[in-house]
Design a protein around this nucleic acid. Structure first.
Lengths: 348, 348
DNA sequence: TTGTAAGCGTTATCAC
DNA sequence: GTGATAACGCTTACAA
């Protein structure tokens, strides 16, 4: 309490209880208090008790900013994700954040909306906090971002996509393979006229890889790909409706449609029903993402479930291993390939 | 480049380009470079150009940790939210983060899962980063959290709930009023036996306020409240199913049910259909949240839409005004009451 | 408008 | 096991 008066005359950080205050109260040196927090086992029980008491009495909260500056490694991890409120990434963020915070690390979050420019500015800002690690989504970055990531002395994890030839840690799955999976599933069901509807969000490049998997698989089966591109940047639900209405007007009509994600598929589902189609009898529909509503639709939506939660958990684990916060033998595993699961429901 | 060698012998922060490096290259003083970033208008064009060039040439990224320590106010804002992946809060987070980052502030995020202990540890960790502001959800905190928030010299915003008698900035709505709104709507539709199903997540205290609004309104109408409590902490979708199956077995059966949120309502909707009920003819159903799937259900779900995005935006705006980053005349508005919107669809 | 000097609160280094 | 001292990279206060 008496410290308050003393420090209140200072220009900045007025009134804040510092390590020095604790040290004075506990009658030990500042460095011992520092050790009490960072390597408690190196402090003898008697000192530990005195420090503990002083910390309690003063309500001391360590200043992580100062610690970060002194040690050049803040207990903070930056993550840039296309969007926070989408159901897929939200689970990844949640799992990542929870795993980190269990080990005393905090999450610095920003969204890029699939824009390389926004990603770049987020990465730049994050680097200023000298983060313990940095997580970015997919492997599409601006040259400046690439440069910063390469030169910064910070472990980088790329999630969502899996791209073994790249330098950063990879935790993700093969989007190309997802397109193959979906297409094969429909081929096995006997469909021949299979269309693919792209995402309306222009920057979603991973979705294009799924499309390419579809194209390749169809060609291998001796069939002609049929890609529909919705109006750029219209709302996904709306884009799905638009695509559905356009495609069922064609003659012959497709037997099955793969949508770039579940939002598009849901819009299409409702549009199809409104048009009097009996699904999946008249037309099979597949999505991607296994959004929470997928099982609530009628017919329920056949889709591919990305390992969202697993990606978040595993990315956090690898980061923590890299930082030595979680024990391991040998090197941190750089390549982490996960799988999407095909969820067969009623719509296809 | 020659700096690299010089600094590489240093213990920490090896190789990092610093303000001093830029100053040396631009042949100005360090403080001018600092001003270049923080008050560019105070630096003359010629100097500005030289500094600009040096920054580019060296690829300088300001060290925000050092800046934060020196100025005792980091450009970082902490937010504690019950959960990140729920559709409601996700929109709040997204809007909050976007508005902040547009003004150069970063978001430090943690989830509490409605646990006061987890909230407390998150707040403690955040305070260590000397954040520019702190955002917490609702007004239910542990005493220790209250103490930290009160003593920390940081603007605090409480979102989601609206509680004018509390000291922190309030941005939210009246949950009690939501219960009233839902109940009145059903009463006006002519229903008399109206039940309420609580949330299965035990810590969701705001949901209990909505329940109390329902109880009060029903009593005022001379009717008896009928509250169903699902098994603690079972998955919400499942809890809705459970509640529905139990309630439709009663004689007489309720004419309408209000659910604590849309997840519960969706589970109930499917259970009702499976049981052969024609909704809403046999039974009216209302949810809360207007989750994305609400309009995709059959029948589509009548629900109340909380101002999720608006809360995030407004909270960010008030924070920025408080920090002087956004201009305003007079004081920052402390009380910000928003409204839920009743979305009348097919289910009630 | 520009510069100098003195911290901000912690941890690394090295000595005891 | 414990402590004195010097950074860490920046901004505030004050001076020119």
């Amino acid at each position: 309490m008496s410290q308050a008066k003393e420090s209140s005359r200072k220009r900045r950080g007025a009134g804040r209880v510092t390590l020095a205050d604790v040290a004075r109260t506990a009658e030990v040196s500042a460095i011992s208090v520092s050790r009490f927090f960072n390597q408690p086992e190196q402090v003898s029980p008697p000192l530990r008790a005195r420090i503990e008491a002083a910390v309690q009495a003063l309500g001391y909260v360590p200043n992580l900013v100062a610690g970060g500056l002194a040690s050049a490694r803040g207990r903070i991890v930056g993550m840039v994700i296309p969007n926070i409120s989408g159901p897929i990434f939200a689970q990844t963020i949640q799992a990542f954040s929870d795993t980190l915070s269990r080990h005393g690390y905090q999450l610095l979050l920003a969204s890029s909306y699939f824009s390389e420019a926004q990603e770049e500015s987020a990465v730049r800002a994050f680097l200023g906090w000298s983060p313990a690690a940095l997580v970015v989504t997919s492997h599409f970055h601006s040259p400046a971002t690439e440069k910063m990531l390469a030169e910064a002395d910070v472990p980088v994890v790329e999630i969502w996509d899996y791209c073994p030839e790249r330098a950063p840690l990879q935790v993700g799955f093969l989007h190309h393979q997802v397109g193959v999976q979906a297409c094969r599933y429909l081929l096995e069901k006997g469909h021949r006229r299979i269309a693919f509807v792209q995402n309306s969000a222009a920057g979603d490049l991973s979705a294009l890889e799924r499309r390419d998997g579809y194209i390749e698989t169809l060609r291998e089966a001796g069939l002609e790909p049929w890609v529909f591109v919705p109006s750029a940047d219209c709302a996904p639900f709306e884009a799905g409706r638009q695509a559905m209405e356009a495609l069922i007007r064609r003659t012959p009509r497709p037997q099955a449609i793969i949508f770039a994600n579940d939002n598009l598929a849901a819009g299409a589902l409702l549009a199809g029903q409104r048009a009097g189609l009996r699904l999946p009898h008249d037309l099979a529909i597949m999505g991607f993402g296994d959004y929470p509503f997928a099982e609530m639709l009628l017919p329920s939506l056949t889709t591919l479930r990305p390992p969202s939660r697993e990606i978040g958990e595993l990315a956090a684990l690898r980061v923590l291993q890299h930082l030595g916060s979680v024990g391991l033998e040998g090197e941190v595993q750089r390549l982490n390939l996960l799988q999407c699961e095909l969820i067969a429901r009623e719509s296809a």
